[in-house]
């Protein structure tokens, strides 16, 4: 394969791969023992009751002129806004770091305690006439093991 062919092939690979890595929303969960796991909305995430976790959310703007600021992203738990001070929610939010904006990339992290057993979807919604975004992370909270694992 001569240089010209290689160039064409590499260019096309680069273009298609660029899209692959330009994901809109990514979710990672840091467990109490410091492990970081990538979450996908279709999967169930196991948590242990009474333990504290950190959820990091980041996204890349989907449109050239994004009409919805990061702060308007909704995080809904049991149908209501996920905020600090709502201790009655099953995933009690302890603190939120606020949005960190870097050009078209935005990220935020939440520290929360799994305070009640059960299955709880956390909805992430960006309401927008251009399509918006909506996904749900499914947290399954179970009783902590005897060794606290």
């Amino acid at each position: 394969m001569n240089n010209k062919k290689m160039l064409i092939f590499a260019l096309m690979l680069l273009i298609s791969a660029a899209g692959v890595f330009a994901c809109e929303f990514t979710f990672t969960l840091t467990t109490p023992d410091g492990n970081t796991n990538r979450l996908t909305p279709a999967d169930s995430v196991s948590l242990e009751e009474g333990r504290q976790y950190v959820l990091s959310v980041s996204y890349v703007e989907d449109h050239k002129k994004c009409a919805v600021p990061p702060e308007d992203t909704l995080f809904l738990l049991e149908d209501e806004r996920w905020k600090t001070g709502k201790d009655y929610l099953p995933l009690a939010l302890m603190s939120s770091g606020g949005w960190i904006n870097d050009g078209r990339s935005h990220s935020i992290s939440f520290t929360f305690t799994a305070s009640r057993q059960g299955s709880f979807p956390l909805a992430i919604i960006r309401e927008c006439a251009r399509g918006g975004y909506s996904a749900s992370l499914n947290f399954a909270v179970a009783q902590a093991g005897p060794a606290g694992l």
Partner: peptide, 18 residues
């Protein structure tokens, strides 16, 4: 590549190069 990345990332990755 797109189907795999879409499955893994739960996003419409094709929209970025479409």
């Amino acid at each position: 590549l797109i189907l795999f990345a879409t499955y893994r990332s739960f996003n419409l990755v094709f929209s970025h190069i479409d």
